[in-house]
């Protein structure tokens, strides 16, 4: 797989900390705005009451300067603002922000980010087991299949620090969301939930929590996926590179009206009655293709 041929970006302080494939699809620095990242509304017809329960906690991401009660504003990696995704203050509440693409050609793709995961600083304690998890989900469809690679970092479960990477291939059953007046084409499956995750071999990793909930250190994350074979190609967080040979995405037959779907979805999940926050300083999506 070719990395970027034009190495001029090595002298660019914004780009040189990334390792993109040959073509950059999107380079989103959130100090420049929301850049097309938005909320997910669970599928429904006729009334919001038909949205599946797991989607009801989801709301718009924020641009945050990371302001805390004890220090003031924290800022981002490169600028003042980062994209903040906040859970509700209850265990296993999940929120998500996504950007919606389609792909021009089935090819290797790669997602990179600088991120921080922290709990709400409501207690003057370590609070390291309050942030539940964060993750990256891709939502993809070619002519035959809908494919959903799921990766999460499970920080804590039921108050216990777990600190390991997981993937999910187990399908969540799709449900009709039209009620009594269903038109039959709109379905929904809450695949972001806490069930069905499997450990990634060798996937234990302690992140840099840094002692109090109001300090966050930026981490590097990279995931690669090949749209030709619909399989994982890489997974990295800071100094750890994981073996992805045994990882599988969710696979299902193609759904209606989703051809060439390519959604990049970032999730955050609470483990306690405190909000969990995922901060993304910047996200770089790249691919390796020729049009000819």
């Amino acid at each position: 797989m070719a990395t970027a041929v034009n190495r001029a970006f090595w002298s660019d302080p914004d780009l040189s900390k990334f390792n993109p494939l040959s073509r950059i699809i999107a380079f989103d620095q959130f100090s420049k705005g929301f850049r097309g990242y938005t909320a997910l509304v669970g599928n429904y017809e006729h009334t919001l009451d038909n949205v599946l329960p797991g989607f009801r906690d989801m709301s718009q991401p924020m641009l945050s300067n990371g302001t805390h009660w004890d220090t003031g504003s924290h800022g981002g990696h490169d600028g003042t603002y980062s994209l903040k995704i906040a859970s509700r203050p209850r265990p296993r509440s999940v929120n998500m922000a996504l950007k919606r693409f389609t792909f021009r050609k089935a090819c290797p793709i790669q997602i990179e980010t600088y991120f921080a995961l922290k709990p709400e600083a409501t207690d003057l304690t370590l609070s390291a087991s309050d942030a539940g998890a964060f993750g990256l989900v891709l939502d993809l469809q070619d002519n035959e299949r809908r494919i959903m690679p799921h990766i999460r970092y499970l920080n804590a479960l039921n108050g216990e620090r777990i600190e390991k990477w997981q993937f999910k291939r187990t399908l969540e059953p799709a449900k009709d969301v039209g009620g009594d007046q269903s038109l039959g084409e709109t379905r929904s499956h809450h695949h972001f939930g806490a069930d069905g995750w499997e450990d990634i071999p060798g996937g234990s990793q302690q992140l840099c929590y840094n002692e109090v909930p109001t300090k966050y250190n930026w981490h590097y994350f990279k995931m690669g996926f090949d749209l030709r074979t619909m399989s994982f190609t890489s997974l990295q967080c800071n100094d750890r590179i994981f073996d992805v040979s045994s990882l599988e995405p969710m696979r299902m037959p193609a759904w209606p009206n989703l051809n060439c779907l390519f959604n990049v979805c970032w999730t955050v999940e609470a483990d306690s009655h405190k909000r969990s926050f995922l901060y993304l300083d910047s996200v770089l999506v790249s691919g390796d293709w020729e049009d000819a």
Partner: peptide, 17 residues
């Protein structure tokens, strides 16, 4: 988004700096 509000209730905090 369609949250049922009753009793004492507040919306989720939103960053607006």
């Amino acid at each position: 988004r369609g949250d049922t509000w009753s009793g004492v209730v507040a919306s989720e905090p939103y960053d607006v700096a």
